[in-house]
Every structure is written in structure tokens, then in C-alpha cells.
Amino acid sequence: MSGPYLRYAAKRLVQALAVILLAYVFTFVVVSILPGDPITNVLRDPQNGFTEDEIRQIIAAQGLDQPILVQLWTSLSHFLTGDLGLSVRSSRPVTTLIAEVLPSTLVLASSAFAVALLLAATIAYGTQFLPKRFGQGLLRGFPSLFLSVPNFVIGLVLIHVFGFQLGLFRVIAPNSFWATFFAAIALGIPISAQIAEVLIANLDHESGQDYAAVARGRGLGQFRLFAMHLLKPSSLPVVTIVALTIGELLGGSLITETVFGRTGIGSLVQRSVSTQDLPVLQAVVSLAAVVFVLVNLIADLVYPLLDPRVKLVGGPKHRPTTADDSSAGTPQAVTS
């Protein structure tokens, strides 16, 4: 851990915190510009049966009678202490609501993540070992196909084929092993496509580099060239891409949970959208941003330690200053 790295880490940490706070403010602004006053609309909905007194109490408890900036400040300071407020709909703490559904989403998201990684690696590394003419072209087509299919369609096809036709699982038992398995596939496939695309592009780039030709000139076969030279430089940058897909995982689970009838963060969001339960929406979006920022922070902090090519700004200079230390910077178009 050198000085420049610690400086870099500190800077990234501060940036991450700033982004989290700004994301909270941004979400607050977006949900506050809702036309009309949906909160009081919901509360005054005769179906809910609140009395005027109760409504006043709720409004006071939520601080809705305060000016908007004061509301923002109160809400933000509560958020920083881990208090996400009360659901307008059920008057229960939002943290409790989220805690109830979180495990189910975590199971789904982490299995989908595993599916995505496995599938991406199979496709990308597979291209290295298949003959150019057929197999490889087919394999290379998969990512763009996967990216073109809405994930609810993948889910419905899986339900139709494996649930209805083959009877492998029942839709009314959405938490069973097979239901979770297929939900994870539906969620993981589009994400695998993004990772596979980057991996394939990196592999193509690296195998086109001079060093790959030179290593081949040193007598290396395709497998050893891949394993010893191409695997590491093409896979390392994927760390940061993988971190970026966390957002897709969270957004995609919204749909996948609906399709498979699972309870989770996604169904919580759905319910809150239809009831305009803003504190819950605000909390879920902010937490998603927190997760995304933290995962990416970790990726950014780990990556320089893995990849020796990364030179941190203000990093140490290793280059010796010998007489031999000057490869001319003049690009010469002298090759034939």
C-alpha cells in the first residue's frame, strides 16, 4: 500500500460518499415533483378509512407540513442515521418492510449473478477453442441475441416450457428450488451478454497485440497462449464491468419477480408504485444507489492492485533514467 494508492483510495471514498448523498437528494427531488399531492390523495382515499385526525397525525409524523427544504434536510439526516421513515401505506418502518423481502431478492440476485458469470465465461472462453468457421461465429452471436430478448420474455418462455409443458416447477410455489433456478436464469441471461461482449472484445484485442504474436513466435500453442497470456489481461478489466452490472441485477429483479410471482424488493417497489408509497420508493432507490456505489468502489479499489498496467495518477515512477531509457516517441509508418 503505497502513498499514491492511499491517496487514490481516499479520493474514491469521498467521491462515493458524495454520490450517495447526491443520489438521495436527486431521488427526493424526483419523487417530490409528483403532480398533485399523492400522499394526501392516498390518505384521503375513502377505502383506507383514515379519519381527518389520523390523517393530520400521519402528515405531522411524516413532516409533510414542513417546507420542502426542511423536509429534505430531515429526511436526509434520518437517512444518514439509518432511519428510512415510515411507510405511508402501512405505517410500518420502511427498514422492516425492506428487511422482510431482502433475503428473497438476495438469493435471486446472487444466483442470477452466478449464472451470468458462468454463462459469460463459457461463451467468451469457448470462442478461443472452437474452429473459426462454424462454432465460433455461432457462439459470438449469443451475446447480441441475449441482449435483444426482454428478460420477461425469457422468464415467460421458461415458465411455459419448463413449468407448463415439462412440469418441472409450479408457478404457485415461487420459492421452490426449480422456480428460483429458472428465475435466476431469466435474470442472468441479459447480464451474461454484457459481460461476455466485453470479455470477447478484450480477448480479440489482446490476441491481436504484438506480444501475443511474439509469444506464439516463442513456440506457444493456442491453449498455453490463452491460459498464460490472454486470460489475465482480458479478464481483469471485467472486474469493473461486473460491478457495473449490479444495477442491472437490481433493476431486472423488479421484472423477474413479477413474472415468477416472487415476493422481494421488486414486488415491494411494484406495490409502492401502485399505492404511491413514496417513503418506500425513496428508500429502495437510495439503497440501490448505495449498493451500486459501494460495489463499484470496491471494484475500483481492488482493480489497481490486480492489474500492474494501471498507473494511478501521481503514482510512483519506476522508469530508470539510464542512457538507454529513451524509446523514441515517433510513430513510424515503416512497416510493409
Partner: peptide, 18 residues
């Protein structure tokens, strides 16, 4: 490699950076 050795043009790109 064993019988025919190769010295490339651009040394900066001819060794695996990682």
C-alpha cells in the same frame, strides 16, 4: 522459438503487460 527465433518491431508492445 526453438529453431527459429523472432525479434519484433515494437518492444513496448511485445511483452505481456500483466
Amino acid at each position: 522459438g526453438r529453431a527459429i527465433g523472432f525479434v519484433p518491431q515494437d518492444p513496448g508492445n511485445s511483452l505481456n503487460p500483466v
